[in-house]
Computed example of a mutant assay.
Amino acid sequence: MRLRRPSVARMAPLPGADAEETAAGDARIGNWALALWMLLLTVAVVLLDALTGEDLPLIPLLVVLPALASVFCTIRQTTAVAVWVTLVVSASRIASTGSFWDVLFLIGFTALASSLGVVACAARIRHATEVARLRSAAVALQRQILRPLPIVTRQVCAHGLYEPIEEDRFVGGDIYEVVQSPHGTRVIIGDVQGKGLPAIGVGFAALGAFREAAVREPELTSVADSVEDAVVRHNAFSAETGEADRFVTALVLGFDGGDRVQVVNCGHLPPRLLHDGAASVVTLHRTSVPLGLADLSGEARAAEWVGFPSGAALLVFTDGVTEARDATGVFYPFDDRLGRWVGREPDQVLEALQADLQSFSGGVRRDDVAVLVLSRPPDGENAAGSLGTPRRNSPSK
């Protein structure tokens, strides 16, 4: 695989829309469309009311319109619907021959029901805004903790694609890190079991432990054991607040600049080797339990060596890629698609993968996507070299 100066990783933008419009969601209705529908429904109900006469008055049915508007519309739109319905009902009843108290009761009931619709809309908007703020804060925190890509060390050039899911309860805990140490370059990519803020907490605990152990520990298995201990400690702390235990599937890799890479597989998906125009699954024979579950296994974690020939690249990823589905529920054919892009630059592979995933899933994702393409850096380039400090890309989509 040819190498060139890496581009900045692609990352999904943070939400920046107006709070009320965001809370209204994709189902919100334009003002002109809303006015047209209101006029058509009003005319239909008034005509039906005129046809049925006093025996079966249908005008009161208009009170359901503010309730419907409160589900799909903004507060301003719902208020306009409520005022419109109140005026129409009042005008129709005043023009009728009913008794004064009947007319007054109906107008009062319409005004009350319409007001409740506005209150319900305001409550929905307020709740949705709070959830959106919490979700945005969680995603922003993820991006601040995870270093921007690319990361270039003396042994490795790491291009990456990271797209956190931004739908409240689906916020995930994918992690990655590349650390230059006295023992070579250490890399981790992991996926925390479960979703939500608790999953992010476990991911951060694992990430912090890896950053320290990657520099301190001479053995790669000791690095994995240190991360294991951090996950166990975090689970013990979380149990005091009623949270369930969580584990982390992860690959821990060590690069020393040679033609082999050391790998500790903690229940994670195996990497793919891109070399000589083909993409192949790297067979790992020593897979251990995920991080946080070592007590369930009587075997110590073991490292193994896999080939990393000159000109090759290792692609590591989380299950947000392989478990993506199309509209019919079919899983993404990752290996078939990956074979089409071998021979391209690392950033071009990531661009093609990102676009293909988006097209295949129809833009609907239910998990974070994290992918690293690991290759040897171009001659003379390293973390302290001409690339300087990687910058974050501006939010765009």
Rank of each mutant, 00 (worst) to 15 (best):
P309G: 08
Q262G: 14
L353P: 03
D295H: 12
S297P: 01
D256E: 14
L372R: 02
F308A: 10
S92D: 12
V371R: 01
L372M: 03
L274H: 02
Y176E: 07
T241H: 13
T328F: 08
L3T: 13
F255K: 00
N235C: 06
M38R: 11
R260H: 14
R28L: 03
L293V: 05
R325A: 00
R272Q: 09
V373G: 01
G267V: 01
V81S: 02
S226I: 06
L40D: 10
T129V: 15
P6F: 03
A95R: 10
I165N: 04
C73G: 06
A33C: 07
A69P: 02
L112V: 14
F360L: 08
P333A: 06
I107Q: 04
N265P: 09
A244M: 12
A9R: 11
W305G: 07
T322D: 04
S136E: 13
F331I: 04
G362M: 13
A384Q: 09
I107W: 06
A122T: 11
T74C: 04
G196Q: 02
F308V: 06
N382D: 15
I200T: 09
L314H: 04
E323G: 09
P395R: 08
W101A: 14
Q144W: 05
I145A: 13
N393A: 15
Y332I: 03
L350A: 06
L372W: 05
T86R: 08
Q193I: 08
S115G: 15
T79V: 14
L251Y: 08
E351P: 06
R2C: 05
L357E: 12
T322N: 13
F204Q: 13
S7E: 13
V45G: 02
L296C: 07
L220P: 00
A303D: 01
I29T: 15
S394Q: 12
A140Q: 14
